[in-house]
Amino acid sequence: MRSRLKGTIQPTSRETRHAVASYPSARKAQQDHDNFDTNSPGLWAKPLAKPVCARFLHCMNKRATVVEITDLHKSYAQLEVLKGINLSAAVGEVVTLIGSSGSGKSTLLRCINMLEVPERGSVRIAGEEIRLVGNAHGRRPADEGQIRRIRSELGMVFQQFNLWSHLSILDNVMEAPLVVQKRNRAEVREEAMAMLGKVGIADKADRYPSQLSGGQQQRAAIARALCINPKVMLFDEPTSALDPELEQEVVQVIQLLAEEGRTMVLVTHDMNLARTISSKVVFLHKGLIEEDGTSDEVFGATKSARLRQFLAAAGH
């Protein structure tokens, strides 16, 4: 199954190959990609696992937990959207959230980086709890600095891409590493080009987002999220705003990242994608986890009647 995915991202044209070749880092990424060995441990899992495990005892057994959500509740006015969610993602895991529209998938994802602040429950990133203050009526982050630091370790990809339209693609990718992580410009530039090469749009670095197709924009958004060296990638329906052909080029990038062993939390309506890349599938229904398990368990031996219904409706 996995080997079939090998080498899926090919430069789209001779032009691209040329652009890729002219940047050493982009070329390196392309080679890494071409020589990718599915049996080797993830390229990115390795450097991540160490600092995480050095700090926390619970890392002793197997793999460290990168995202840990406990008893999460979130309401908008009267509407209770999340009613107590427990969820965790270990290093290198791909956790996929599925569920019908309005079931709270986006809200859950946005609670991970505190774009929405939950009324109850806690979120831990690499063992560090995000501190919140206030009562059930209005909680807010206790420490803006902590929030910003944690956010700079979470790469988010939005359904509507949300690239900054006044910046070129390269500047989009370089913005957070420069401004938030305060890294060296030359080094960031090199890495940004490598990331753009990885998603196959190194030749578009100087364009503005509005000059790219939807699929290219979403790949640029993925490069932007990759360039901060995130502990976790958060995807909110990354392919839903795209035509079927454009969808595939983004799906291929996401599959490549899964192959690399990146930790990801992914909201998607694409059941094929969910089935192939997930370490864990979580079915949300009306703000609660109705069923979860490995891809085979959830898709192969579905227990919940609601999930069966949902999968049938999704054409599965």
Binding site: I147, R148, R151, S152, F158, N162, L163, W164, E175, A176
Partner: peptide
Amino acid sequence: QLEAARAFGL
């Protein structure tokens, strides 16, 4: 776009 900026820690 503002939300994306916040999400990246600005």
